[in-house]
Simulated assay, not measured.
Amino acid sequence: MFNRKPIEERIAERVAKRPPLKEGKHFEHKPALIVFLIVIGLVVVKFIGAFLLMKLGVH
């Protein structure tokens, strides 16, 4: 339809154009690192809050 390649082929071509990842690097771009750190931070804060509530005896 409309002489366009399927989305899978277009994505594959775009991924193939990217340079290879550097050795020891886990995130390709900063936004991925920022989102990962925010999620980990929220999990840590939630656990600390739960332990504080248990310590204080709040139900």
Score class of each variant (00 low, 15 high):
residue 3 N to T: 15
residue 3 N to C: 11
residue 3 N to P: 00
residue 3 N to A: 10
residue 3 N to E: 13
residue 3 N to K: 02
residue 4 R to H: 11
residue 4 R to L: 14
residue 4 R to T: 12
residue 4 R to G: 09
residue 4 R to V: 12
residue 5 K to Y: 04
residue 5 K to I: 02
residue 5 K to R: 09
residue 5 K to L: 15
residue 7 I to G: 00
residue 8 E to Q: 12
residue 8 E to V: 13
residue 9 E to F: 06
residue 10 R to H: 01
residue 10 R to T: 14
residue 10 R to I: 11
residue 11 I to N: 05
residue 12 A to E: 05
residue 12 A to W: 02
residue 13 E to R: 07
residue 14 R to H: 05
residue 14 R to K: 13
residue 14 R to V: 06
residue 14 R to Q: 13
residue 14 R to T: 04
residue 16 A to N: 07
residue 16 A to H: 07
residue 17 K to H: 06
residue 17 K to T: 11
residue 18 R to I: 07
residue 20 P to E: 12
residue 21 L to H: 04
residue 21 L to N: 08
residue 22 K to C: 03
residue 22 K to G: 06
residue 25 K to E: 14
residue 25 K to T: 06
residue 26 H to A: 09
residue 27 F to L: 04
residue 27 F to V: 00
residue 28 E to K: 01
residue 28 E to S: 05
residue 30 K to H: 09
residue 31 P to K: 05
residue 32 A to I: 04
residue 33 L to H: 03
residue 34 I to Q: 06
residue 35 V to W: 08
residue 36 F to Q: 06
residue 38 I to W: 04
residue 38 I to L: 12
residue 41 G to F: 11
residue 42 L to S: 10
residue 43 V to I: 14
residue 43 V to E: 05
residue 44 V to I: 15
residue 44 V to S: 02
residue 44 V to N: 02
residue 45 V to T: 08
residue 45 V to N: 07
residue 45 V to H: 02
residue 48 I to S: 06
residue 50 A to V: 12
residue 53 L to K: 09
residue 54 M to T: 11
residue 56 L to Q: 10
residue 58 V to Y: 10
residue 58 V to S: 07
residue 59 H to R: 12
residue 59 H to M: 04
